[in-house]
């Protein structure tokens, strides 16, 4: 019996392993090609997975051709700012909707939920024109101000805070603590998991944010990395295989690094978010 199990396990692991390798082939190919000096303009045929002539020329060229460091910095800053704002406001609103008692609570929450059903694209044009009238186009304000109302985050936060027992709050309130005090001292420390989840979602969303920065930001100096990479794609030099792959790899590195360090939390958050629906 045991032997059968070992064989079937081995078979399963092999099958999964082969599938995994096939799935990861594009990544390996891209990385190895980007370090190959002979791939400047021609796609090697038959395909190679090990560079024929190892060199970092493609990367040097990529770093020169597009201001990728600038894009990194821009995206990092924007991610940091937006994550702080979005997660913080999600938590405050989540707390208010969960534990608060005030008039029109139900309606206000409905207004928040309704936003989730309105696709962003519906308000794209008027929002664009509005920012133009305020002279805020080609600055970062349009990319930041939206973070104050993250409907999905509010929803998740509220759901989580619901599960915190009221007794904790009430005893503090009895002692004369104000709501903000309770929020910072008692509620937030207990919200580790949901804060982690929200942070991870925000970071990934911000890094992949494309349409809105594309519309709102025109000067390359202020652009984020996803749009910056796409702009490179359209330029003359994008015909060259090597630099293009180098650029792709460079664009993907930061999130990969985050992933490698925080894999456990990320995977956990994803699985949690699915079940809690």
């Amino acid at each position: 019996m045991k032997k059968k199990k070992i064989i079937s396990q081995a078979a399963m692991i092999t099958a999964l392993g082969v599938t995994l390798v096939v799935v990861l082939i594009p990544i390996c190919w891209a990385i190895s090609m980007s370090f190959d000096a002979t791939t400047i303009d021609v796609v090697p045929n038959p395909p190679r997975f090990i560079p024929k002539e190892f060199s970092v020329f493609n990367y040097k060229y990529a770093l020169e051709a597009i201001p990728i460091i600038r894009y990194y910095i821009n995206t990092l800053l924007l991610t940091l700012i937006n994550t702080c704002i979005a997660v913080f406001t999600a938590m405050t609103c989540g707390y208010a909707f969960s534990k608060g008692r005030f008039p029109l609570k139900g309606i206000l929450f409905l207004l928040v939920l309704a936003v989730m059903m309105i696709p962003f694209e519906v308000r794209l044009i008027p929002l664009f024109l509005q920012y133009r009238d305020w002279n805020l186009l080609d600055t970062w304000w349009p990319l930041i101000l939206g973070s104050f109302a993250w409907a999905y985050g509010i929803f998740l936060a509220r759901q989580f805070i619901d599960s915190i027992p009221d007794s904790l709050r009430e005893s503090a309130s009895m002692d004369g603590a104000g709501e903000w005090h309770i929020f910072f001292r008692i509620i937030l420390p207990l919200c580790g998991p949901v804060i982690a989840t929200l942070v991870i979602f925000q970071v990934v969303n911000q890094w992949n944010n494309f349409l809105w920065p594309l519309v709102v930001v025109s000067s390359p100096r202020k652009q984020v990395i996803s749009v910056g990479l796409a702009m490179f794609n359209a330029s003359e030099t994008a015909r060259y295989l090597g630099p293009r792959l180098a650029v792709s790899v460079l664009g993907a590195i930061p999130l990969m690094v985050v992933y490698l360090f925080l894999q456990k939390y990320i995977v956990q958050s994803v699985m949690l978010s699915g079940v809690k629906e």
Binding site: C84, D138, T139, K222
Partner: peptide, 19 residues
């Protein structure tokens, strides 16, 4: 939190606001 927010907003104003 407050410190981070303050710093972030300051950074945003410096880099993003000045066109």
């Amino acid at each position: 939190i407050k410190a981070t927010l303050a710093l972030s907003l300051a950074a945003a104003l410096l880099l993003g606001g000045c066109g």
